[in-house]
Design a protein around this nucleic acid. Structure first.
Ligand code: MN
Ligand code: MN
Ligand code: ZN
Ligand code: ZN
Lengths: 148, 148
DNA sequence: TTAGTAAATAGGAATTATTCGCATTTAGAA
DNA sequence: TTCTAAATGCGAATAATTCCTATTTACTAA
């Protein structure tokens, strides 16, 4: 993560991050992790694949899917419900919310301090254990606002 | 909606509801609307189709999809992002939140008064017009909590 | 170093969810 | 009743994701 003179590009740090999560530091995982750290689009699996295929011609889309799933399970990543329900991911683990354009599905980051977020109860009726509370804004982005 | 002695089953009221929304009161729409009023599962298109196919053997799945889309556009319905992002719908327009089991995808209603919901700003940076604010609980349901 | 081994990958096939195209039917208007 | 735009049913098409499995690879421990 931190880029030092001894580790240009942060590759060693990434490898350690993977091992710390109990994962082998393989080439596909390292490239995907790097993409996640730099890609601010809240990309889909396909978007990640497309962004890497030139540099890593042997990468396969199904590896991207698998890797994202693995990363999600290890908490290296969070999933966003993009418009239409397709998988979008966010490599930024810092606390923040999302705004999704109801028309084009674009995802925007929202400062979490913009609203005072409610503190969720630890459990709900029917024995539901609360793991997380999400706040999502349904918005109309400026592009989509024009033609409507 | 109201079931009177003059309208057993509420069929006439439903037909009026459709016409009031500018839609033809067709047989598929009437059955789907009824299903939506009574099905508390937050069903998918397929679930609705399955629940109706015996009573309406000529109903087609693509009509269910189309009808849901139409109802969504007219505000007769709301869409929920079920687990994995598949389409789930909620015929209950009353204000309430949802809890989605991270493991099995089951959807539960949550009393909106459980937390004090933040009031969203009318707009966000980048010219985003806020249309709606959703609060969603990510939970572990009691079934899924046992085997984990 | 050098095997040995379990884990991970590539690539294609399969599955699932959803959408599309179009010929036929139908609700509601006239 | 007749007419017509709108809605439906059906199958084909597409898109997203998952599955299968032979091959490769990262780490282990000798
Ligand atoms: Mn984000
Ligand atoms: Mn509900
Ligand atoms: Zn937009
Ligand atoms: Zn569950």
């Amino acid at each position: 993560m931190a880029v030092s003179p001894q580790d240009p590009g942060g590759g060693v740090a990434r490898a350690e991050k993977l091992r710390a999560a109990g994962l082998k530091a393989t080439a596909p995982r390292l490239t995907i992790l790097e993409a996640l750290e730099t890609d601010r689009r809240h990309p889909s699996a396909e978007m990640i694949f497309e962004s890497l295929i030139d540099k890593s011609p042997s990468l396969s889309l199904s590896t991207v899917y698998q890797t994202l799933e693995t990363f999600l399970q290890r908490g290296l990543l969070r999933r966003i419900a993009g418009a239409g329900g397709k998988l979008r991911v966010d490599g930024t683990l810092q606390d923040h919310d999302h705004a999704v354009c109801r028309t084009c599905g674009a995802v925007f980051d929202v400062d979490p301090d913009l609203i005072k977020r409610p503190r969720p109860p630890a459990s709900l009726p029917h024995g539901l254990q609360v793991k997380n509370l999400f706040v999502e804004y349904e918005v109309l982005c400026s592009d989509c606002a024009s033609d409507e």
